[in-house]
Design a protein around this nucleic acid. Structure first.
Lengths: 150, 150
DNA sequence: GTAATTGCAAAGGATTTGCTCTGGT
DNA sequence: ACCAGAGCAAATCCTTTGCAATTAC
């Protein structure tokens, strides 16, 4: 065990966790992670989530945070983007449809953008060059109005 | 020194290397790296370049490879893209203008694509949302015709 | 001769894995 | 009781940094 005594079981729904095996169990950690993600509308790092969980008295191992994020991402329940620095940023997503983001590099605020025309364009260009089994990345970074002013 | 006897100084121009300090000296290593990059039309990793240099009898330390790549990239003489796995890929670029790539995930073959319309689009969308100081990433990955067939 | 460059070894930082203990069901 | 999940420590992977030895100029 750790050192910090768990803040006792709060009365939470306790969501289902990593489906590493076949079944899936509801754990305090899984619930805490899901809840935190649900209330976090910006892209954040695994490390940040880990820190905030400790602060709110719901300590969860960093490894566990990573494992849940991985499962959630695979299930398409959260988005993952890779920063130019090579760090992964996670965020709950409103739709499971394919989409891209406009991310504020200062506060993490994100705007999901409709990229229908771009999708069409990339497919057309790549196909014209004889490429198949396509995939692509597209993220726009900038400073949002609030951060630019304040 | 290493173990592999340098293939003696061939009669190469010996390009200028890392401008880490103020001046810049021409070294055998810098020339080898520049030459290899010049003859490599696909995106490759630093490790791969390092390995190939050894194979062709021009051993260069991995550290040195990284340092030269960094300098070349800063100077805009080579392109750098980050794979979803977090590895950097390098390639000489034909133009220093802003552009994007269509990369074969099997052989690394690359097609530089004109993205004028996309540039316009991203700027319009981001500006409409109040974002400034824009930057963006866009890469398309796929399997090229050759790799799909063979 | 002097300073830039090299390159080994070791550090760094994010993420993953091994393995044992804990805790849902 | 049984097996999925938690989590610590240690391992990975790529890339960077420290520093002494080398070498261009």
């Amino acid at each position: 065990m750790s050192d910090t005594p768990p803040a006792a079981a709060a009365g939470q729904p306790a969501r289902r966790g990593p489906g590493l095996g076949t079944a899936t169990r509801a754990t305090r950690q899984g619930a805490a992670i899901a809840a935190l993600l649900a209330g976090t509308p910006v892209f954040t790092t695994a490390q940040d989530l880990h820190t905030r969980l400790r602060q709110q008295g719901q300590p969860v191992g960093l490894t566990t945070v990573y494992r849940h994020l991985q499962v959630l991402a695979d299930a398409g329940q959260i988005d993952v983007v890779r920063t130019p620095e090579g760090e992964n940023l996670y965020r709950r997503c409103s739709t499971q449809d394919h989409h891209h983001h406009l991310v504020c590099r200062t506060c993490g605020r994100t705007v999901e953008i409709d990229t229908t025309e771009i999708e069409t364009w990339t497919t057309r260009v790549a196909t014209a060059e004889g490429f198949t089994d396509l995939d692509h990345t597209l993220e726009i970074y900038g400073t949002c109005a609030t951060c630019a002013t304040g």
